[in-house]
């Protein structure tokens, strides 16, 4: 069943059309690879779906909800979460707190209840336990009480993943999660992504330059070039597509 339906999505900056009438769908439970050379418009697509950018035209439907009518801070409430290519963490907070902010939408404490601790204690403990469990799951438990500042890049990318999982989203979009990892670590990460998809009942969109990884774990792949979709299909189909081979000639495939 289709859960994410992007139709004719378009945005331009000045003269540059960053995303040109892009359409694709993702089925529930799928991992959809979104690939393309640098500057193809992958991150911009994430920014449009998560409402950080306003599209010129097109539509984004998530499980029957028109996301373009949802303000940016309500996107997480719809069950859609994303990570950032260049990280968007809180360096001064501990890693555990970073992950707990991810659970913002799953908590009810308010400015009225929190100061007086009206029934907030139990919820706070539950969130803390869950966040710690996620960190342990991602091999990050040793960092839980350190401030995020100063940790290695690859670790920070995993912390972002952990934050995304803490939100219990239905759709998780990952922007280049394997940056800064060694080959062996990439293989591990690939397994981890499949694993969390199954255990957290996720649908995923994955932007990644590491082709072997994308091809290994994606159920379908969408290829962008200059903002346009040039191919779509199973990893095998896409790899055999002459257009794709041309776009990547001399690229990083």
């Amino acid at each position: 069943m289709t859960i994410l339906d992007v139709q004719d999505l378009r945005v331009s900056f000045g003269g540059i059309v960053a995303v040109a009438d892009l359409s694709f769908t993702v089925d529930e439970g799928q991992i959809c690879g979104l690939i393309g050379p640098n500057g193809a418009g992958k991150t911009t697509t994430f920014n449009l779906i998560s409402r950080l950018y306003q599209p010129d035209s097109g539509s984004v439907d998530f499980d029957g909800t028109d996301l373009l009518r949802v303000p940016p801070h309500k996107i997480a409430h719809q069950g859609v979460f994303r990570t950032f290519q260049n990280l968007a963490l809180w360096p001064g907070m501990t890693v555990l707190d970073n992950v707990m902010v991810g659970a913002h939408t799953r908590s009810k404490q308010s400015v009225l209840s929190a100061p007086f601790r009206f029934g907030t204690r139990r919820e706070e403990n539950r969130l803390r336990e869950e966040a710690y469990a996620i960190l342990a799951d991602l091999d990050l438990a040793e960092h839980a009480f350190k401030p995020a500042a100063g940790l290695p890049y690859g670790t920070l990318k995993r912390i972002e993943l952990a934050r995304g999982l803490a939100a219990h989203p239905r759709l998780l979009m990952l922007d280049e999660p394997a940056t800064g990892l060694t080959n062996a670590e990439v293989t591990e990460l690939a397994e981890l992504i499949r694993d969390v998809r199954d255990r957290y009942d996720l649908t995923m969109v994955l932007v990644e330059h590491h082709m072997a990884m994308v091809m290994a774990i994606s159920d379908k792949v969408v290829v962008l070039d200059f903002g346009q979709k040039i191919a779509e299909g199973t990893p095998q189909e896409v790899q055999a597509n002459p257009e794709v081979i041309r776009a990547y000639l001399g690229g990083d495939a």
């Binding site: 950080l52 940016p72 801070h73 968007a88 404490q109």
Partner: peptide, 27 residues
Amino acid sequence: NLMKSRPGRAIIAIRDNPTGAQVSGIN
């Protein structure tokens, strides 16, 4: 109490990284 709870974290999250806070569902 406020600062050690969800709204407190939200306040600091907005200060240090508004984008990250926004995608986490904070207004």
